[in-house]
Simulated scan of single mutants.
Amino acid sequence: MQETPLDQAARTVLSRYAVVGPQANIVALGNRGGFSGARLWSVRTEADAFCLKAWPPGDPSPDRLRWIHHLMRLARNQGLPFVPAVSETRGRSTSVHHAGRLWELTTWMPGAANFHADSTAEKLRAACAAVAHLHRVWARVDPLAGPCPAVQRRYERAREWLEWTEGGWQPPLDQSPAPELPPWTARAWTLLPAGVRYVSRVLQPWIDRRLPLQPCLCDVWHDHVLFTNNEVTGLIDYGAVKIDHVAVDLARLLGSMIADDTVLRDIGLRAYGQLRPLSPEEQELVVHLDRTGTIIGMANWLKWLYRDRKRFDDYQAVAARLADLVQRVERWSVSA
């Protein structure tokens, strides 16, 4: 297969890393199922395996990426082997700016994101414990107190959605960019009027509530947790890291892994709480962020597809992600 300009750029970037020689085997992986616009390559030498990542053009900023890398290195230095190690260039930088993008090289993490294919309570405990270990390390980085940013993001998106729809906007479902989408976008559109009002009602009491804040992953979900047997051997993709409350990570993780299974959710929360205790208030927030995040996820997809007119590489994957959200909300029968 002929190399693309981005593949050629990847080889140029790799030449700046001493850990990768000219004989390395490089395999393009595309977006690996993601939607951010990042591109990935598998890089294998005789001794090691790496993941080369080209971040989306213009995002993140160099300062933000340095901060992310600082957090990852802090976690590795504190003995968390499931966090990828960030490689340095010959010039001692953890990133390269080339071809209009920032690039990074990290260790290739072993394991598979196979919880759904082989779900056990042991795996769920291990996943929640891994996140708790990471949170404990990151809690030492400029701890803050204030309103939960995840609550504010969801509440603002609900307000924005109501403003658009009450002003007459509706998605042109007959102009979908792919035939896989209309069955799910139509069902999402039907669910959202009651769903968005539910978001506003549930989150309103939390808007100004002060909570402990710290760096959080903010997008840790099923496909980002790699297992070898029942052990977490990889926690990948740090692109969404921001200051938030730890409940946002538990909500995303548990919602993606066990959906609405309350027995397994309690098992996961107990495993997490053994390492980083959760107050009853924080456990309640996990449930609220999971449910409201699922509803706002539907609104986001309709916004991206029909208002922003964003384009995606794999619309089957988009339809599958939207289907998961729609089917969860339909099971709840959220009332206005």
Rank of each mutant, 00 (worst) to 15 (best):
V225C: 07
L192V: 01
P171M: 11
A129L: 07
S176K: 05
P215H: 14
E166M: 10
P172V: 08
A130M: 06
V199R: 01
A132E: 01
Q204C: 12
Q175F: 03
R136Q: 10
G146R: 09
P177I: 03
A150R: 07
Q175G: 05
Q175R: 15
P143A: 12
R140Q: 15
E166V: 00
D219Y: 13
L144N: 11
H222F: 11
A158L: 04
E180K: 09
V225M: 04
A150C: 11
E156L: 11
P149F: 07
G167D: 06
F227C: 01
L191F: 05
W206T: 00
L217D: 07
C216A: 13
R157F: 15
H224S: 07
W206A: 01
P149I: 03
P205E: 02
P147S: 04
G195D: 06
V202W: 04
L162H: 06
R154Q: 14
L144S: 14
A129W: 04
L192P: 00
S200P: 00
A186N: 07
H222N: 12
R153D: 06
R136S: 03
P212G: 08
Q175M: 11
Y198N: 03
L162M: 12
Q152W: 07
V151H: 01
V220A: 11
V196C: 09
R136N: 01
E160P: 07
S176A: 15
A150T: 11
W221R: 07
G168I: 11
H135V: 00
Y155T: 01
A188P: 06
D219Q: 12
A139P: 04
T185S: 15
W138E: 08
C216Q: 02
R157D: 13
V151F: 06
E160R: 14
R157I: 11
L226A: 05
A188V: 09
H135S: 03
G167R: 10
T185R: 02
P177D: 01
A194Y: 10
V202L: 14
V199F: 04
T190K: 13
W161P: 00
R201F: 14
Y155W: 08
A186K: 08
A194C: 13
V141W: 03
L162G: 04
W206E: 03
R140V: 04
E166G: 10
R197E: 12
T165L: 04
T190C: 15
A139Q: 11
E166A: 14
P183H: 15
R201P: 01
W169D: 08
P205V: 08
L213H: 02
V196R: 00
R157M: 15
R154T: 06
W161D: 07
R140F: 05
H222L: 12
C148P: 09
L173W: 04
G195E: 02
W138M: 08
C148S: 14
D223H: 15
D219N: 14
L226T: 04
L213W: 00
L213D: 00
S176P: 10
V199C: 05
D219H: 08
S200C: 09
L226I: 02
P205T: 03
E166P: 01
V202C: 11
L134F: 03
C216K: 01
D219W: 10
A178K: 08
Q170T: 09
A150P: 03
A194N: 12
V225F: 03
P183L: 14
C218M: 06
R209V: 15
R153V: 06
G195Q: 05
G146E: 14
Q152V: 11
G167M: 05
W184L: 05
L217P: 00
R159N: 12
L191V: 10
R154C: 13
H224N: 13
W164K: 05
